[in-house]
Design a protein around this nucleic acid. Structure first.
Length: 944
RNA sequence: GCCCUGGUGGUGGAAUCGGUAGACACGCAGGACUUAAAAUCCUGUGACCAUUGCGGUCGUGCGGGUUCAAGUCCCGCCCGGGGUACCA
């Protein structure tokens, strides 16, 4: 039979469904393998050919591992909370749950057509209450936890309370905001009096007695400073257009990642996750996992560890100090001024009367600029003198204090000690403001630029003179410590993650408020399900949409009206697949112990600073609390590249409805317009179809080139509806079949690489499957497979192919497997090989890539069971080597001819044979060989 | 700027440990079959020179180096892609 892929694929997809072929259980003594794709957000647009790239690769690998005897967990689900469904709801009033349901149905239909081996009984949806019940449970679990910096481990909040009971906060290092105690002092009780009995100069220490004398409210606020998820007033990224806050990783280039709307800084009371506590753990963990180096590097940069010191500069005219963070304490003798961020709390306190106007004006200006503006501004170092001075801790000299917006309030202490000789920004600022530069580096006059090398010996630096590098660093810190004006300090760039969103379509918080204090709703009462609302917009007074529901806990208490961010549900979904229907826990201990870490995670690199960091954080916390048996979720990860679209363009002559072929467009003034790629073939436009495509082109006229063709221009760019360059898998499956699509997507190149989508080569891959089919049966339907013993050549082809395919899959080289199978099929076709012994193994090798065709052929070979149960063939060594090896003979590195010799001949005999060869004398040109190199089964090189 | 990647024919790519560069496929050219087209099959296809045949020279972004041998290792550049930034 000719290759009737449409029939075959339908038939086997039905078979798999009926027989539950891909069901997975834990009740087996097989070794496990967990391979996971990043689950999709089910968007209304459906899948384009780029989406399944990673899914196909992981599906192939999952099938391969099954053939090898592993028990493979290869699940799929949906990250189904999200903005688009909500925005659609705002426009149309349709409940996001319905939109989501429809989109999922469409996704499922598309996924099924590609022939994946998912166990759909394990499907998860982040928006289903059975799932988000556990997202809520994790939230409360993290709320009931603190982080012990000494042990670097999460602990239950009770152990912290125990500490406080016994010793106050002495001898305990709990992760918290550095200014935690200051924020407590701002709190007032019902009568407007300070809530706490500590004075304004309280340094944060409290005793067991202090703790014991605190009331419930005081303890609540104090503990909130240490919980791993906490409610606090914090500066957040507010996106007015979206009406919600955004996490740092949801902002790209200063605008929202979704929609590209402006983002401003705003102070709001929000839930946050104390991910900053895990900075060091997240950093160290990277060494334990097998991820692409660039992703690790992105995470390292995002965590942004810098080792340095803090130093305290006493104020000259006032009591108090300015704390600065520096990575170069060794340059401290080069300090010629300090710079504060305009938002620094001391600014108004220290500014002198005659500088007041200038400073206030500058602060106001800076406040108007958002972070993006500050970046875009020229590199000019703006700033203003405050009129105040500080005392250099080591020299005792006065240094002026400036403010400048090149200092960021959110990093370090919001204040820097400026060393113009050693820091380029400080140098620029000093030049701009005519501040004298203290020279502290040997042979460096600072007239051109700062000297940023750490290895230049210091001068003018008192006891540091002559030192450099680590020695100078340590010596400077030591002397600061001695006078209690500084200490070693490690700083991280990683900020806590804001966890509240002012949206409807997300997980509701299991939280209500009693006397203004947040209370967790008990585990037994979960899930807290989303209430219905009349509109999906914020209320008139700016509360989140959930406030419209008038939602109350026990009819009495105000609920939390924010919802959780998109990353909440995706931070633990890999755990739920292990035991998706469990009603008692996120997943059973047994299931988690059995499946363990994800062995291979496929997905896009764009989640490096979001999902991939948050999932690690949650897994670590849950591991510390002994809910999860491992601390890193994803052992190995491969990032598939993006498949780009190839857009086609037509050129309309200005102010007409006449279109000119791309090769002639230079002669006219034209406007470039997109043309749908479905009416363009090989850059040639189907002009009739174009007229029918959009009403406005109905009367279009064309200027064709000499060949009578209308040629389109093209560009490679992201696939999107508005560019009319979206290629859906459905069309290709219709035309060539899912097996061809699967093979072709792999054949395109290494999965990690980004590449433009191009259907040009798909015929070649389709022909390969047809040729393969023809080894089994003629196009007329005559079955060709015989029981005869195959000849040696066919067996050699087979075993070499087994070896190469196996090796290639093991090193995740999906693309070369297709080539290898093509070569094998070409060879067998030439050999006229139709022996069952050979072809049966071929079917198994083929089955990960083209499962439908493989099932069909396997069945026709007489098997009742699915081919997925077949064992992976093993290569027999005897067939891998030829008896004869064709040695390339080179002279001075240039290959001249080949000589066939016994493959097992030793080097000395090979040399003898070569020297005796007639051509050797010719290439020696009478010279004597200086050296003859023989590498057995590789090469012969004669040096002369 | 810094960090991470990558750069191979007309195109996608292969070359896994330093050992015949360009596998496999597309495209293109020529041919067979056909009224014709599609499909299928055959031949050729890195560039240049030579061509009756044998062959020769160059060639993996550029310039050096190590080596009997370099796409692969080392040094210095150039260009593309991604990340990140007044981060003190």
């Amino acid at each position: 039979m000719s290759y009737t892929f449409q029939e075959i694929e339908k038939k086997w997809q039905a078979f798999w469904k009926e027989h539950n072929t891909y069901r997975v259980t834990e009740t087996t003594d097989k070794k496990k393998y967990y391979i996971l794709d990043m689950f999709p957000y089910p968007s209304g647009a459906g899948l384009h050919v780029g989406h399944p790239l990673g899914y196909i690769a992981s599906d192939i690998f999952a099938r391969y591992k099954k053939h090898q005897g592993f028990n493979v967990l290869h699940p799929m689900g949906y990250d189904s909370f999200g903005l688009p469904a909500e925005q659609y709801a705002i426009q149309t009033g349709q409940h996001p749950a319905i939109t989501t349901e429809n989109n999922i149905a469409r996704y499922r239909e598309q996924l099924d057509k590609i022939g994946f081996c998912y166990d759909w009984e394990r499907e998860v949806r982040t928006s289903s209450p059975e799932y988000y019940q556990w997202t809520q449970w994790i939230f409360t679990t993290i709320y009931r936890a603190w982080f012990n910096l000494e042990t670097q481990k999460t602990e239950h909040i009770d152990t912290l309370i125990q500490h406080f009971e016994n010793n106050g906060n002495f001898n305990v290092q709990a992760a918290c905001d550095e200014k935690w105690h200051q924020s407590l002092l701002e709190l007032k009780d019902n009568e407007g009096q300070p809530l706490y009995f500590f004075g304004t100069d309280w340094n944060g220490d409290f005793t067991a007695t202090d703790w014991q004398s605190m009331n419930e409210e005081q303890r609540y606020h104090l503990l909130m400073c240490f919980r791993l998820t906490y409610l606090a007033d914090s500066m957040v990224n507010w996106c007015p257009a979206l009406g919600t806050v955004l996490a740092n990783d949801e902002i790209k280039d200063g605008v929202s990642e979704r929609g590209g709307h402006p983002v401003v800084q705003k102070k709001m009371r929000q839930w946050s996750m104390r991910i900053s506590a895990f900075s060091e753990r997240l950093l160290l963990g990277l060494d334990q996992i097998d991820w692409p180096e660039n992703i690790k590097e992105i995470q390292r940069n995002w965590i942004g560890k810098s080792e340095g010191a803090t130093a305290f500069f006493d104020l000259s005219q006032h009591p108090g100090q300015i704390e600065v963070f520096t990575t170069r304490p060794d340059t401290i003798f080069g300090v010629s001024y300090l710079t504060l961020a305009p938002e620094h709390p001391l600014v108004s306190y220290i500014t002198t009367a005659d500088q007041k106007d200038a400073v206030e004006q500058y602060v106001q200006q800076a406040a108007l600029k958002n972070e993006r503006d500050r970046q875009v501004q020229s590199k000019e170092m703006t700033g203003v003198f405050t009129g105040a001075f500080a005392i250099h801790p080591l020299t005792g000299k006065e240094v002026p204090i400036y403010i400048g917006d090149y200092v960021l309030a959110g990093y370090g202490t919001g204040a820097v000690m400026a060393v113009p000789a050693g820091d380029q920004r400080d140098w620029d600022f000093a030049k701009h403001h005519n501040i004298p530069i203290v020279l502290i580096f040997e042979n460096h006059d600072a007239s051109e630029s700062a000297c940023t090398s750490k290895e230049v010996p210091l001068v003018n630096s008192d006891f540091l003179n002559g030192l450099c590098g680590k020695a100078a660093f340590n010596s400077a810190v030591e002397s600061l410590e001695k006078i209690e004006h500084g200490n070693k300090k490690v700083n991280y760039r990683l900020r806590d993650a804001v966890f509240s969103r002012q949206r409807y379509w997300g997980e509701p918080f299991p939280v209500y408020f009693k006397d203004g204090k947040a209370q967790m709703i008990g585990d037994q009462e979960l899930p807290v399900t989303l209430p219905d609302v009349d509109k999906y917009l914020p209320t008139e007074d700016g509360e989140p949409p959930l406030a419209r529901s008038q939602w109350k806990y026990q009819n009495d208490f105000v609920m939390e009206y924010n919802t959780m961010p998109g990353w909440a549900g995706s931070s633990w979904y890999f755990l739920r697949y292990m035991d998706p229907k469990n009603t008692q826990a996120i997943a059973s201990k047994e299931a988690m112990n059995y499946w363990g870490q994800v062995d291979l995670y496929m997905g896009g690199a764009e989640h490096a600073t979001g999902h991939l960091l948050y999932s690690r954080f949650w897994t670590m916390t849950l591991h510390d609390l002994e809910y999860v048996p491992f601390g890193e979720p994803f052992q190995k990860m491969i990032n598939q590249g993006m498949i780009l679209g190839r857009s086609s363009f037509v050129y309309r002559i200005k102010d007409t409805n006449t279109f000119v072929s791309a090769d002639l467009r230079k002669e006219y003034t034209t406007q470039r317009l997109y043309a749908d790629i479905s009416i363009v073939d090989n850059d040639q436009l189907d002009t009739e179809a174009f007229k029918k495509w959009l009403p406005e082109y109905h009367n279009a006229e064309f200027i064709l080139n000499e060949k009578g063709q209308y040629l389109c221009g093209f560009e490679v760019e992201k696939m999107s509806k508005s560019k009319y360059n979206v290629q859906t898998p459905d069309e290709l499956i219709e035309k060539f079949g899912a097996d061809t699509l699967r093979c072709y997507e792999m054949f395109l190149g290494p999965v990690e690489q980004s590449k433009p989508w191009d259907t040009k080569g798909i015929n070649g891959v389709h022909n390969f499957l047809r040729r393969l089919n023809r080894l089994f049966q003629t196009d007329e339907g005559q079955w060709m497979v015989t029981q005869d013993a195959p000849n040696k050549k066919s067996l050699q082809t087979l075993h070499r192919t087994i070896k190469k395919v196996t090796d290639d899959l093991n090193r995740h080289s999906w693309n070369t497997v297709v080539s290898t199978l093509m070569i094998a099929v070409n060879e067998w076709t030439e050999q006229k090989c139709h022996q069952k012994e050979v072809l049966e193994s071929l079917v198994v090798l083929l089955s990960p890539y083209a499962p439908h065709l493989a099932e069909e052929l396997w069945n026709k070979l007489g098997h009742q069971d699915s081919v997925t149960l077949a064992h992976w063939p093993e290569a027999i060594a005897a067939y891998l080597e030829d008896d004869v090896f064709s040695y390339p003979v080179s002279f001075n590195g240039k290959t001249r001819f080949n000589i066939d010799l016994d493959a097992n001949m030793d080097a000395a005999s090979v040399e003898k044979e070569v020297m005796a060869h007639e051509k050797t004398a010719h290439y020696l040109e009478g010279k004597a060989p200086k050296k003859v190199i023989v590498v057995p089964k590789r090469i012969i090189n004669i040096v002369c």
